[in-house]
């Protein structure tokens, strides 16, 4: 398992170590990102009329909420040094289950929402169980499961949407709290806070980080890494389901194609936010705030470029370029840190 992991995801970045004080903060991913966000926001706000209108701020905030949730879903499994290509498929599957429960079966929303999230976790459990038991890298397992999950969903729904959901669902997507702030962004912030506490203060969270940083050492110190990896996949599934539900609220309907063919459209936001935020692909380190900032940066850039009438297809290319620049900048940052003897 570890051999395959290091071979397939050959991430040469060394582990972060404690450097000293202010310089470390100034060179941290989060600080750089916050600076970039402030810069981009300032430039767009000054040059583009309408960028800071309440409606624009509302849609930007809502998009940040959804993209962050997608990023967090991937982050939860990147912790183990693995990945989950099926996040999009899980998100859509959970959204469709929710659509069925709420629209056809008439299950009340307070029950349908947790059921859909639990369903996402079950799909995550299947991924994790197969990965752990087979010892095959999660890339290929989740490549297969994304095809299977999506295939079963599209077969059962016959590619039909659930578009007569209870009115509370689209209302949720439009709900504003405290001026232009979307309720979806609030939900995401709450989840971010919970995850930060989870990784820092709970045994399970710390075991996840330990298993990701060095599986053998974790195993030797009594952590049952297999179970931990399964738990990571379940967390990913649950978060992906939540992202799917949020997207459903925004659209006002559960649409099978809302994450593209096989859910592939989620892959870029899913990796972009954590990687921008400084989560190591080799596992063992997460940054919940970084993921939030990463998603915020991407969303602000996208909104600004759209307002500048850059075609949405070219924005797709820009986002790809941004991912490339992000990893290159990260590499450069490491070299600077190493040259100054900070790592």
């Amino acid at each position: 398992m570890t051999d395959a992991t290091s071979n397939i995801l050959d991430e040469a970045t060394p582990e972060h170590r404690r450097g000293s004080g202010l310089m470390r903060l100034a060179l941290s991913n989060e600080f750089g990102l916050a600076l970039l966000i402030a810069l981009a926001f300032g430039i767009f706000a000054m040059t583009l009329p309408g960028f800071t209108s309440p409606f624009s701020l509302f849609t930007i905030g809502r998009q940040i909420g959804i993209d962050t949730m997608i990023g967090l879903a991937m982050m939860a499994v990147i912790v183990t040094g693995g990945l989950d290509l099926s996040v999009g498929a899980i998100g859509v599957c959970a959204a469709m289950v929710f659509g069925y429960l709420a629209q056809i079966a008439g299950v009340p929303l307070p029950l349908a929402i947790p059921l859909a999230i639990a369903f996402g976790s079950v799909l995550g459990f299947i991924n994790g169980y197969v990965v752990v038991r087979s010892g095959v890298h999660s890339f290929i397992i989740t490549l297969a499961s994304m095809s299977i999950f999506f295939g079963i969903m599209i077969f059962l729904t016959q590619a039909q949407s659930f578009n007569a959901l209870p009115l509370a669902v689209p209302a949720m997507g439009k709900l504003r709290v405290g001026g232009p702030i979307s309720i979806l962004l609030i939900i995401t912030l709450v989840v971010c806070a919970a995850l930060s506490i989870f990784y820092r203060y709970t045994t399970l969270g710390r075991q996840m980080l330990a298993a990701g940083a060095n599986a053998r050492a974790a195993e030797l110190s009594g952590i049952r890494t297999g179970r931990i990896i399964i738990a990571c996949h379940m967390l990913t599934g649950g978060l992906a389901a939540l992202a799917g539900l949020m997207l459903t609220a925004r659209t006002g309907a559960a649409v099978p194609s809302m994450a593209g063919h096989l859910g592939q459209d989620w892959l870029l936001p899913a990796f972009l936010a954590p990687v921008l935020g400084g989560t190591l692909l080799s596992g063992g380190r997460v940054s919940v705030i970084g993921t939030l900032l990463g998603a915020a940066f991407v969303t602000i850039m996208t909104s600004g470029l759209l307002l500048m009438r850059v075609g949405e297809f070219w924005i797709l290319a820009c986002l790809g370029l941004m991912l490339l620049l992000a990893v290159l900048a990260d590499r450069l940052r490491h070299q600077v840190l190493r040259a100054r003897g900070m790592i």
């Binding site: 397939i8 050959d10 297809f313 790809g320 990893v327 290159l328």
Partner: peptide, 30 residues
Amino acid sequence: VIARTGISAFIITLAGLQIFKGINLGITEA
């Protein structure tokens, strides 16, 4: 890019996927 930077091929080709697909759609407008 993969060979010179040592960054995982997964991330580089994911970025490449978006860049080349974006250029494709930008030229053709779908």
